[in-house]
Design a protein around this nucleic acid. Structure first.
Lengths: 127, 127
DNA sequence: TTAAAGCATAGAGTGTACTCTAAGTCAAGA
DNA sequence: TCTTGACTTAGAGTACACTCTATGCTTTAA
């Protein structure tokens, strides 16, 4: 199956503008064109975009994604390098989760204190 | 104890530029000045900045932080509203953690596949 | 054949959060 | 007094990731 940019946008949740921007940045390595120049998205492209979405959620920049995409197109010699990228990214995600858990504790503590303060405030302002 | 902007920058890990920017954005409500205009950071300010750092790590924007800061200065009538802000933020953090855990699974799967592919590649290229 | 829809490009504009620069003030030590 | 260093401001500049605009080309249905 092949899809127009409009369909691809709907399927991936990105805008047509963003898909063209990603193409311009060369991070859609499998994307083909018709002879008149229209982009022709395949299932492989859709899957790739969904994978990019996942990488972006972990905080990976377009620049880093570009580097990875380039390595993918250079064949098996870059396998070790690509493996290292993901190992580093795994660490980064784990650190981010740990950091968020810490912040969660701080926010929860705030909620406790505000709950108490608010209860006391209501008590003082009883009619 | 009071600190200069340079000391405050070192203590909080932010730059002097950033601290001045935060002050301009009115998210440092307790910050005082000397009569000649120099900023005078107290321990309370340092704690507040560390708390802002925590909120920022959770993805809260300067704009939202400003709203919260404003509410803090309006007294007890805004207690309920502030409580709601933190409840919403708790939810946002929990969702972010869940999302990161999903991405972590995807990255881990990539690591497994690359580890295998790389082992096979090495096997094929034995001298 | 003509109108509309959908696609293309180059390049300008936007929002966020800084980050830096230029020019000037102020306080302390040689 | 003069220099040095730390501070001040307003406002310009930067990086990132889009987002939009203007203009024009194709394809398709009426």
């Amino acid at each position: 199956m092949h899809y127009s940019i409009k369909q691809a946008a709907r399927m991936t949740g990105l805008s047509e503008h963003t898909l063209r921007y990603y193409d311009k940045e060369n991070i859609l390595p499998y994307l083909e064109r018709t002879q008149s120049g229209t982009r022709r998205f395949s299932d492989r492209d859709i899957e790739w975009i969904e994978f990019l979405n996942c990488l972006k959620k972990t905080g990976m920049s377009i620049e880093n994604i570009k580097q990875y995409t380039d390595l993918c197109q250079q064949g098996d010699e870059t396998l070790a390098e690509r493996l290292e990228i993901f190992k580093a990214q795994r660490l980064a995600i784990e650190e981010k989760i740990a950091e968020l858990n810490e912040s969660l504790q701080v926010v929860k503590a705030k909620i406790s204190r505000y709950s108490e303060a608010y209860a006391a405030y209501q008590e003082n302002n009883k009619t």
